[in-house]
């Protein structure tokens, strides 16, 4: 565990020292300021819009963060050959992947929490109530971000960074479609589309901005189950990524 945690901290420090993370932070900050300017058609509607836009921003933010943080980690290590002395000596491939993943996941979680706190501040400044489900909803979005990180790592082991981003975004979009909606993309081959949809994740489980914005209670059990589902899919994606990485020759 110690080698993985040390490497994770090394990844964390490396990400924080790069400019990418600060660029993303500035975008989040601008988005929050923008949300603070949402006009209200009545006080309750303004709070609802702020929550709706805020949570939508966090959803998109978690996708962009995952791509921004992780799509270039392994390609950069491979291109600069940094990966070789690390894998040749102190770490196994599994430890390398876990260290890189945990480091990026810590940054992702911290950024999402900062976004959630920012949204809270905006709501408070505009004298709106903070729904108690905002915290578990952010937790769910963090899990979603970790799952996306695992997806980005998986893509990064067999494709280039310019392809990684569109592939991840495509997965993000189609994984939120219902089965019938997905089959509707190619109605002539419903069997294939259904099988394909079965293999894709159900990312719609992470999205609960609608009930929160409308002040509805989401049962705690749902948050728990959705988090377990997200974490399980994340573990699966990491296992697939590791299987690909273990097969790769490091030329």
């Amino acid at each position: 565990m110690r080698p993985v945690m040390t490497f994770a901290l090394m990844t964390l420090r490396s990400l924080l020292r790069r400019r990418t993370i600060w660029g993303i932070s500035i975008v989040i900050l601008i988005a929050l300021v923008g949300i603070g300017q949402v006009p209200g058609y009545g006080v309750s509607n303004q709070g609802r819009f702020m929550l709706d836009f805020g949570l939508f921003g966090l959803e998109i933010g978690t996708l962009l963060l995952a791509i921004g943080l992780a799509s270039n980690i392994y390609p950069r290590d491979r291109e600069r050959k940094t990966v070789m002395p690390i894998i040749a000596v102190p770490l196994s491939r599994g430890q390398y992947l876990m260290g890189r993943f945990v480091g990026a996941a810590l940054v992702q979680a911290a950024a999402m929490l900062a976004g959630c706190l920012g949204l809270m501040v905006i709501l408070m400044l505009n004298e709106h109530a903070i729904p108690p489900d905002l915290f578990p909803a952010t937790g769910l979005l963090i899990v979603e971000g970790w799952f996306l990180l695992a997806v980005v790592f998986f893509f990064s082991f067999w494709t280039s960074p310019p392809l990684n981003a569109p592939l991840t975004i495509l997965l993000f979009i189609v994984s939120q479609m219902s089965v019938s909606g997905f089959v509707g993309l190619l109605p002539t081959a419903p069997g294939i589309m259904r099988t394909l949809r079965l293999l894709l994740p159900h990312m719609d489980v992470f999205h609960i901005k609608d009930p929160i914005a409308h002040g509805m209670d989401v049962p705690g059990l749902y948050f728990l189950l959705a988090m377990v589902y997200g974490l399980s899919y994340m573990v699966f994606m990491l296992a697939v990524a590791l299987a690909v990485f273990r097969k790769r020759d490091l030329k």
């Binding site: 609960i208 609608d210 749902y222 959705a226 589902y229 699966f236």
Partner: peptide, 26 residues
């Protein structure tokens, strides 16, 4: 949507178990 459809919550548990088993095997 899943949050409102409690009859599919069990499927999340089922899929979680399958995914963890597949991951372990892999």
């Amino acid at each position: 949507q899943p949050w409102a459809a409690d009859f599919i919550w069990g499927k999340m548990v089922r899929d979680s178990v399958i995914l963890v088993l597949l991951a372990t095997g892999l």
